[in-house]
Amino acid sequence: MGKFIKAGRVVVVLSGRYAGKKAIVVKTFDDGSKARPFGHCLVAGVDRAPLKVTRRMSKKKIAKRTRVKPFVKYVNYNHIMPTRYQVPAEVAPASMCTDQQMDTADGRIEAKKFVKSLLQEKFSAPPADKTGKPSKDVLGSELEEVDALVRRIIGEVLGDQPYLADSSDFWCDQILERSLKELAGIGRPFKYMATCVISPQRLGSVLDTAATAFWDTESDSLCCTRLGNGSVECIVTVYACRR
């Protein structure tokens, strides 16, 4: 997979604390390193994206809702999915974070502060695309739309219900059917496939999942959404293949 992943590529993290989050590849290590003898890369991503704002909101509330919470970490190639999105050259991914900064806690904090300021700047004034309009492909706006849609449907189907093994199949069917129906209604030029995993959310329980595919990374995408209500945990993975 390393051949498809280069600095500046937008990827989706598939496992761990940041599963489903989007990130930018800062540096690649196709042959591994001494500390990590496997193919991996350094990424800078968005843990919490800006929220929707309206004109009625105060300036203080708008400033709070448009904050970006970033993260920086090393990720195994097997735990990320490259998308068709590439950040503009002026973003300079290599300047976001360095190996020296990742070696210390203070360095990681400094790197996250820089990434936060950079992403918030690009969010406030996105770079223009080929037509001169603000680009919507900087961090995969289509994937953000899919993630928000799936999260809403999971919340509506599960609500505050406790985990019931007899109901898990019904919940999966409802979530997948509604998600695919609404995704088809968006009108994007994609064919969609989706999987759904539902498990009890108990203290100390562990659920590891992984997903990968061999496709055109320039046109196809993947969105992994994870949501729980304290009793039930749901993971929905949507594969979008351009027609």
Rank of each mutant, 00 (worst) to 15 (best):
G155A: 00
F123R: 10
S58I: 10
G39N: 04
F190A: 00
V43H: 14
R84P: 05
M81V: 01
C224Y: 06
C223K: 10
V13T: 11
S58W: 13
V138S: 04
F38L: 11
F29T: 03
M96N: 06
D166Y: 14
T217W: 06
D220Q: 01
A49G: 14
V197I: 09
Y18M: 13
L143E: 04
A211D: 07
K122I: 08
L222P: 02
C41N: 02
D216L: 02
G16Y: 10
E182I: 08
G107H: 00
M96L: 13
Y239H: 11
T104S: 08
L203G: 09
K112W: 01
K52T: 13
K133H: 07
V150S: 02
P37D: 08
R67Q: 15
G187K: 12
A111E: 01
L227P: 01
S179W: 13
Q120F: 04
E233A: 12
C97R: 12
K133W: 04
R152S: 02
K22L: 13
K27H: 00
H79N: 13
E90R: 12
D103M: 05
F71S: 10
T209E: 14
D216G: 00
V115M: 09
I24H: 07
G140A: 00
R178D: 07
E110K: 03
M1R: 14
Q101A: 05
K6T: 14
G2T: 14
K52W: 14
R202K: 04
R226N: 09
P162Q: 04
V26D: 04
E144A: 14
R151L: 06
D220I: 02
L207R: 06
N229Y: 04
K73C: 15
L139S: 01
C223R: 12
G228C: 12
K6W: 14
A63H: 09
C41F: 02
S205Q: 03
N76S: 10
V72K: 08
I186T: 10
Q174H: 02
D166F: 15
G132V: 03
E142V: 07
D129F: 01
E121H: 05
V87K: 07
D160E: 06
R108G: 00
A44S: 09
N229F: 02
K27F: 00
E90G: 07
K22I: 07
S168R: 12
T209H: 15
V75S: 03
E110Q: 07
K21M: 08
D129V: 01
